Amino acid sequence: MRYPAAARFLRTAIPAVIHSYQTALRTVRSPLVMDREAWPKCRDQAQAIVEDCITTLNGDQPPEPVEVWQYSRLVGADRANQGIAVAESIRAVELLWNAMQPIIRTAVRYEAPARRASALLLISSAFRHSSGNRLYAGVVGYGEATARASDGVLDDDAEGCASKVAPAHAAACSVLSRREREVLEMVAKAMSNSQIARQLGITTATVKRHLNNIYGKLDAVSRIDAVNKAFGYH
């Protein structure tokens, strides 16, 4: 079942949700918002979760689990390298859900009275599924980074994950156009074609064309393969 009216309102309210979420994180002095390097990825994850709720309300499928897993695992590794405890990620999910509550209650009122309860249930289910997948992948990435650090793998690389990605990213920059890089960076954030199109103000057909060009230039066979080859994600 589709709930387009609630989806439209929720989309317009994304900035308000993120602002409320950021305020809540600041109130508890979470390092996810106090750390300048941590906040951008935290914000991206929060927006992706809200986008997944919107996508589900529209009756569409959220991004492929493997894409969500790949990016979220890297976020978890980054947080381990930054010394941010896993508990902060768990608390952040709770704060995001709380920040969404007023917006959700308003959003479902845009649907017919008989449809509001089911719309609310669908949003709740989509949120749990999206946040749960990202949280689990982040915990796995956190554990992997912690294990590497304990084995001394990171001793010769103080910059951690980011420095490993940089050379591959530079190589990608030499073969991809600016727009293609923008598209691929959004793919790496587990955004769907429709989400990328809205973000860049282009059509989904244009997104697909850019992806086909990217695949050709990088000799990639899939979205994840292209991200791996461009940014060195493993």
Rank of each mutant, 00 (worst) to 15 (best):
P63M: 08
A13P: 01
M34E: 10
A190H: 07
G216I: 14
D35Q: 05
E182S: 06
C173M: 14
H234R: 09
I90W: 10
A24Y: 06
M1R: 07
K208P: 03
R2K: 12
N133D: 14
I214V: 13
R128M: 15
Q195V: 02
V153H: 04
Q82P: 01
E64P: 00
L218Q: 03
Y233N: 05
T56R: 15
S163E: 14
L32D: 05
A166R: 11
K189A: 04
E88T: 07
K164P: 00
N212S: 14
A188F: 00
E111W: 03
A205L: 10
A99I: 10
V140C: 11
N193D: 08
I18D: 03
N213E: 15
S125K: 15
H19M: 04
W97L: 15
M100G: 03
Q22K: 08
E111A: 04
T12E: 10
T204K: 05
C161T: 14
L57V: 10
E111K: 05
A117F: 05
I224N: 13
A119S: 12
A158D: 10
A119R: 04
P4S: 13
S131P: 09
D151T: 01
A92N: 06
A87P: 01
F9D: 03
F231W: 13
V153G: 01
Y21F: 14
S20R: 14
R134H: 09
L184D: 01
A205F: 09
A87W: 09
M100Y: 02
Q45V: 11
K208H: 13
I103H: 12
A119M: 08
A171C: 10
T106C: 14
S163Y: 14
L32E: 04
C53M: 14
T27L: 11
A170I: 05
Y136F: 14
A112Q: 13
I49Q: 07
H129Y: 13
S125T: 15
S131L: 10
R223A: 13
G216Q: 15
R73T: 06
